[in-house]
Design a protein around this nucleic acid. Structure first.
Lengths: 215, 215
DNA sequence: TTATACACTGAACATATGTTCTGTGTCAAG
DNA sequence: CTTGACACAGAACATATGTTCAGTGTATAA
């Protein structure tokens, strides 16, 4: 993406205003609101500067649409800044029980909202709250939330949520196939991996993110 | 907040559409766009239903403002859904060096955007990326991001980022005053706390959140 | 049977909002 | 000195958008 290096002070003021307006209102300002905030008396000049900012990749506009602008993000696929994805809270995850995920299991009203650029994938996501200390080998604490993408296959290096039927437990570990075994590697580098029979490993999802909210 | 329990199917369709529209466009739809999506031919009926949803606390509207609606969140202070706070990336945090935070130290362009309801506070925040394995006693991994609120005082129970001048290290631990000592309690419950002279503890900030992005 | 509440309809209207037009001023390059 | 690019200004205009109006239909309660 080509970006002009030196923005005028007006252009900086415009971008700053748009960001703060979005934070307060969760929708973008109008041309006139931008003008008022940036000390520009003419809608034509606001339009001119927005056109420049759009050309240089700082924002995106939709023609003939009220409030039809959004800030560009530096994500490779230009996911718009301020766009969020809702990740439904699907319950809890604890060592001694398998995760139950399925249609209708979780309440779409109770969801975690995350800005899209925090996540590499946006489909088939759900959030699980950790119960107990059993996940600390994954550096995941009681009460943490893990964002999981529902899938039943894993690739080497994926952090997975897996149900081990021989042990009767759910675990979060890095997954590697090795010959006729599966190596499950804790995130904590001071801890040893476990080796299990592939038949007992039931992949429930791939972990994309961990969120810990304190106090 | 008083909420009507049973929404009509039209009202559910309206809310669902608004959410998905916000996700795709990062600004809300118009009355007519809602009508088109929900199969309502009359702007008056859309307006009527939005009025009901507003009365029941599902969304907020601004009068005579284009796209002047936003979804309600269940946060105690009714922080609007989709509103985000920008947390500037202020560099890294590693054991062997104090955090350097100050005006202008960090680049406001490089920021983490989080939905406001994830954070109890929204001022004086910055984000630090963890370098090294030294924070695993806080269940924080190399590469994780910690959201810190800049403050130099701590209350018992706060998770703090503290520089210990006698040890020459930065640590993340729960802070407790005890008689003439400070107890710093690791997040990992299987690990022992450390007791230090209050004079060597330099509080750099309170940790509000940890974010781990995988792959 | 009547009254009331709720949901809906199409149309009209008022205002919000974005775009375009015609110009001026400044600065740097030729 | 002239030219061209850039930034700006006020006004006009067109369309987008939200609100209101005068009604209809249905269901329930009295």
């Amino acid at each position: 993406m080509v970006r002009k290096k030196t923005l005028s002070s007006r252009q900086k003021a415009i971008l700053k205003f748009i960001r703060s307006y979005l934070g307060e209102n969760s929708f973008p300002p109008t041309i006139r609101e931008i003008g008022a905030a940036a000390g520009i008396s003419s809608t034509s000049v606001v339009n001119y500067n927005l056109k420049r900012l759009q050309e240089w990749g700082y924002l995106l506009r939709q023609k003939d649409v009220s409030r039809g602008l959004r800030l560009a993000a530096d994500a490779p696929d230009l996911v718009p800044a301020g766009g969020v994805v809702r990740v439904p809270m699907a319950g809890t995850i604890a060592a001694g029980e398998p995760i139950e995920i399925g249609e209708g299991v979780f309440d779409e009203e109770d969801a975690l909202e995350l800005t899209r650029d925090l996540l590499p994938q946006h489909d088939n996501l759900y959030a699980l709250q950790v119960r107990g200390d059993s996940m600390i080998d994954a550096l995941v604490n009681d009460g943490d939330i893990v964002i999981v993408q529902h899938q039943q296959e894993a690739r080497d290096g994926d952090m997975v949520a897996a149900w081990l039927s021989d042990r009767g437990e759910t675990t979060l570990k890095y997954f590697y196939r090795e010959r006729d075994q599966v190596r499950l590697q804790p995130a904590n580098p001071t801890m040893q991996p476990i080796y299990v029979d592939p038949a007992v490993v039931h992949i429930q999802g791939r972990v994309l993110m961990v969120v810990r909210q304190l106090s």
